[in-house]
Write a protein that binds this DNA or RNA. Structure first.
Lengths: 158, 158
DNA sequence: TACGATAGTCAACGTGGTTGACGAAATAGT
DNA sequence: ACTATTTCGTCAACCACGTTGACTATCGTA
């Protein structure tokens, strides 16, 4: 086993990645709350994104998110309660219940994209655009390709 | 509002940071399982680290982790069940119950540190050492200073 | 000694995850 | 056309982790 740089212990890298993620998400939701979306939780933004403007079903949503259809259904229920999603019957298949983003959900989605763009620009101002590009490229090279799994609570906890 | 580069939408940065974090943690736990610690969950490693070799109490652990003393106590209970922590009475203060890392816990902690060092070295081989250093430095500059909060499930979910 | 602060636990609850079982509806096969 | 299988959604039970509130036991101090 080769020796590691004592000034750069390996355990700091994941902590810093998490800290960066968390900082961005916290900043996003602080701004979203300011813009009229205080109910949105970090998880919800990802779910809205996964539903997309075309809509989907609970089962397909579960597959996209890497969680069970039951878990996806529960999360949809919560987002229906707070007015970001709606369920409508599929006229061509009575088994399916289409999940669609409401106008309010679309507004949250649009604002999220804008805020993320703004935050990335702030990072580029502080660090330099090429540094931010490099972080993204490096992470793309290292991270698993199927990283769009949003079973965060269950994954982390267990 | 300045326009953003369409090829670099802002929402990808947090996703990539999360993907990098998750990749490291998944690799860590795959290797930990191989080395005899299959029960350890991502959360547990952080808790063990927070307990440290000196031991602590549930209340203090909660403060370090940014969660309530009750939540900290529950997590300690689980880690006691699987043999990574132990509780001993404090002879100087009958109210306190010291939480200590068991030999098995210390083994997991030591192996985790080694595996993280190895993973960081692998990143350095793929990306170049200066790139990994730069990622760490950049994230240190951007991330909130008080990033050692491990209320991940509650934070992300709600 | 009496009182306030502290440590730990119990109970109830919310959120998100899981698996298993089930009815209803679409699809495939004979 | 009538079964048989697959698929979608939901219900129920359970686990993990977080919260707050209430309570006991103990310590430290006025």
């Amino acid at each position: 086993m080769a020796s590691a740089d004592p000034a750069r212990p390996g355990f700091q890298l994941p902590l810093l990645l998490l800290a960066g993620f968390r900082t961005l998400i916290d900043d996003l939701h602080a701004e979203l709350a300011r813009q009229g979306h205080p109910e949105l939780r970090p998880l919800h933004g990802f779910v809205l994104q996964a539903v997309g403007m075309d809509g989907t079903t609970a089962t397909e949503l579960g597959q996209r998110l890497g969680i069970s259809k039951q878990a996806a259904g529960k999360t949809v229920d919560r987002l229906v309660e707070v007015g970001y999603l709606e369920r409508v019957d599929d006229p061509r298949d009575a088994r399916r219940r289409l999940v669609r983003v409401t106008p309010r959900g679309a507004d949250g989605l649009r604002r999220s994209a804008e805020i993320f763009d703004t935050l990335r620009r702030q990072w580029a101002e502080r660090l330099g655009a090429e540094r931010v590009d490099a972080i993204e490229d490096d992470l793309r090279a290292m991270a698993s390709t199927n990283w769009f799994r949003l079973d965060m609570p269950g994954w982390f906890g267990g």
